[in-house]
């Protein structure tokens, strides 16, 4: 098991390097370097340009160096926790992203948990009572959930709650808590608001998961070992939960890998609509104002998070499914 994990971590490194290259390309893509934009902005607002500061910034980001040197410098600084400077906020990027990334991670984790908690029982029910009206109804809801993009769902929900219930569901905190320091009351307030984005982003994935579980479980239920167990007189509930369900939910663990990028994508755009204090709105703003160091750092972190998530899911899968462990041992 340990060797498997170590091997898996080593595989991760080239991926992370490739991701950093792409993030760096995104930083460099807009024409002209960010200092030109910065000085242009300063001279527009009539502020004096500090030549010394300019020189030091130039040196810090290696703007006179060739491209690959700039990348190496950027990557080196990145590894040491220096993510560059946000020119829009005039702050180090590091001070801007921490809480927002944490919020994004919180929402993604909650959403993932929510989708599992909802989809597993429903999927089992749909498979066991195949073609009942509940099954048909759930399939229908699932289709709608799949077809409605997150942000449109958010938009419609926002409108319905505003127009008919008279409340604004945007944001993650009530106004009185948004600037308050963290304490129990704030956490409770957060929980009160958190379910909205979680449900919005979770719906589509819940639908997908229900289909996966239902399909897998239907295949399993036809297998002879189920008949054998039933013939032996095992109670139906215990029989289903103990054997076929265990096999049928295995693929869910392996789907974390491709679910995470989609979740993070979905949250990014839903957050813009609902105005949540996560990475999405700030990333959009950074991109619009060409504050590329901030934007690039966000993209780098979001992608790195997905890689990390994939790693966790692979380890979980190996833990749940002995076949993968043994295969890994043989390869070694």
């Amino acid at each position: 098991m340990l060797t498997y994990i170590i091997r898996r971590i080593f595989i991760m490194i080239p991926t992370l390097i490739a991701i950093s290259v792409i993030s760096f390309i995104i930083i460099e893509l807009p024409p002209g370097d960010f200092l030109t934009a910065y000085t242009a902005e300063l001279s527009m607002s009539g502020e004096a340009i500090d030549q010394v500061e300019l020189e030091s910034l130039k040196k810090r980001f290696g703007l006179d160096e060739p491209l690959y040197m700039r990348y190496l410098l950027w990557a080196w600084n990145f590894l040491h926790g220096d993510f560059g400077h946000s020119f829009e906020w005039n702050k180090p990027v590091r001070d801007l992203i921490g809480e927002r990334l944490a919020m994004s991670v919180t929402i993604s984790t909650c959403t993932l948990l929510f989708t599992w908690l909802v989809s597993v029982p429903i999927g089992i029910y749909s498979a066991v009572r195949q073609y009942s009206w509940v099954d048909h109804f759930l399939t229908f809801i699932g289709f709608i959930g799949l077809a409605t993009p997150n942000f449109l769902f958010a938009l419609v929900l926002l409108w319905v709650s505003y127009a008919y219930l008279g409340m604004n569901v945007g944001g993650l905190f009530s106004p009185e808590y948004s600037e308050a320091p963290w304490d129990l009351a704030k956490v409770l307030d957060l929980l009160k608001h958190l379910w909205i984005p979680v449900v919005i982003v979770g719906t589509a994935h819940t639908a997908k998961f229900i289909r996966i579980i239902r399909g897998n479980l239907l295949d399993e239920l036809k297998k002879p070992y189920v008949t054998t167990a039933r013939a032996k007189g095992l109670p139906e509930t215990r029989l289903i939960l103990k054997y076929p369900v265990r096999v049928a939910i295995n693929p869910l663990v392996s789907t974390i890998g491709w679910t995470l990028p989609e979740l993070i994508s979905g949250i990014a755009i839903t957050a813009v609509v609902l105005n949540l204090p996560t990475t999405g709105p700030l990333l959009l703003r950074a991109l619009m104002s060409q504050d590329m160091q901030l934007a690039g750092t966000f993209i780098m972190f979001l992608s790195a998070l997905t890689v990390l998530g994939t790693l966790i899911s692979d380890i979980l899968l190996a833990w749940v499914d002995p076949r993968i462990r043994y295969e890994a041992r043989e390869v070694k």
Binding site: T15, L260, L287
Partner: peptide, 24 residues
């Protein structure tokens, strides 16, 4: 295959946003 894996690691909307925002 490695290239495909790297591309699939990116959350697509932030990546699209990054690329699209680079247009002058």
């Amino acid at each position: 295959q490695r290239t495909i894996e790297v591309i699939r690691c990116f959350p697509s909307i932030p990546l699209w946003m990054g690329l699209a925002a680079a247009m002058p």
